[in-house]
């Protein structure tokens, strides 16, 4: 038991109950949870995100500080690792692309152990595997949800739905990404809970988004496959939101929908203030996006000011006679 994850779990459950109670009491609360909070959340997300990135943009990066993972550019006969230690812009672009799309730095994850009387390093793939499963599932889920926000629905959404529902199990058809999202988030959570070393360094800010995303995936799966909600009315409402003609449709929708929407609103509004900013931060990490060309190109610190110097020659000119008197060696007689 650990206060960090128990408090996060409790927070998510209480937030869910608040939204559910609000949806049940109807009227004003449906407008609050269905219209006001989602708009506020989107606004906070967009403006907060821009603010955070501009804050980073203002931070000076005077020197090249890439973390390198291979042989740097050197003599012609020494083979350079062009992607892991890039010295050109193209190399950096390839390195960044692979990092963002394939999470290469997580792929290198290793574990240190003492085995018998010797130290051993072991390649551990689980973090990378859970992360890539989680992120791509989330992407597929987000793109699929655009069917509620577009009219007519653009071609790529049915395409993704076809691929995601390729198993053709059940009706409504089971989507692979829904379960892999829930599984990915749960596995990442278990990793933090069960591995002592990782548990030790985990904070409430690590657990909260995981519980929140598990809550989102769980309510989504419940609505699609189990308790059911009225999809046509939901789309009427979401279309109202994105066309700036908000309204609560007549007839029942289902309380779980409001819980789902409230969770998503919180997640979206929480992004700019949390670790989830790695979404934008990955593009701006100076240890990845700089070329290692410090030895080929001189990088002058842009805020260097002219420094007043007093050279040894000038010093000797000032004190020559006294130095000779004291018997100190001088360069010019």
């Amino acid at each position: 038991m650990n206060v960090n994850y128990l408090s996060s779990l409790a927070a998510v459950i209480i937030l869910g109950l608040i939204a559910y109670a609000g949806a049940q009491s109807g009227g004003f609360y449906q407008v609050l949870f269905g219209i006001f909070i989602p708009y506020l959340a989107v606004l906070v997300f967009i403006l907060g995100f821009i603010n955070r990135v501009m804050d980073w943009a203002k931070s000076p990066v005077p020197f090249r500080i890439p973390s390198t993972c291979g042989q740097q550019q050197s003599m012609e006969w020494i083979k350079q690792s062009k992607i892991d230690n890039p010295s050109t812009f193209i190399g950096v672009v390839i390195r960044m692309f692979l990092e963002i799309v394939l999470f290469r730095s997580l792929f290198r994850n290793s574990r240190v152990e003492i085995r018998g009387d010797r130290l051993s390093y072991k390649w551990v793939i689980w973090l990378w595997l859970f992360a890539i499963m989680f992120h791509y599932s989330f992407l597929a889920v987000v793109i699929r949800h655009l069917r509620f926000f577009t009219e007519p629905v653009p071609f790529f959404i049915p395409l993704i739905e076809k691929v995601d529902g390729i198993l053709q199990v059940g009706l409504p058809i089971y989507y692979i990404s829904g379960l892999t999202l829930l599984a990915g988030a749960t596995l990442l959570l278990l990793r933090r809970v069960l591995i002592p070393k990782i548990n030790y360094i985990s904070q409430a800010a690590d657990y909260f988004p995981l519980f929140l995303i598990i809550g989102i995936a769980f309510t989504g799966i419940m609505m699609r496959y189990f308790t059911k909600v009225d999809v046509v009315r939901i789309k009427e409402m979401t279309m109202g939101l994105v066309t700036l003609h908000p309204g609560i449709p007549e007839g029942p929708i289902g309380g779980l929908f409001y819980v789902h929407l409230f969770f998503v609103s919180i997640l979206v509004a929480y992004i700019p203030f949390s670790k989830l900013m790695h979404m934008g931060g990955v593009f701006l990490s100076p240890t990845r996006n700089l070329a290692n060309n410090s030895r080929a190109k001189r990088h002058i610190n842009p805020w260097n000011y002219p420094v007043k110097v007093h050279t040894y020659e000038e010093y000797e000119d000032d004190f020559r006679e006294k130095m000779i008197e004291a018997g100190l060696p001088v360069e010019k007689e």
């Binding site: 967009i46 926000f149 109202g240 994105v242």
Partner: peptide, 20 residues
């Protein structure tokens, strides 16, 4: 970033047809 994340807002030209 803003263009991608506001996709639903500009894609529909701020008008929705009545639900079926």
């Amino acid at each position: 970033f803003v263009a991608v994340f506001t996709f639903p807002f500009w894609y529909n030209h701020l008008s929705a047809s009545a639900p079926p």
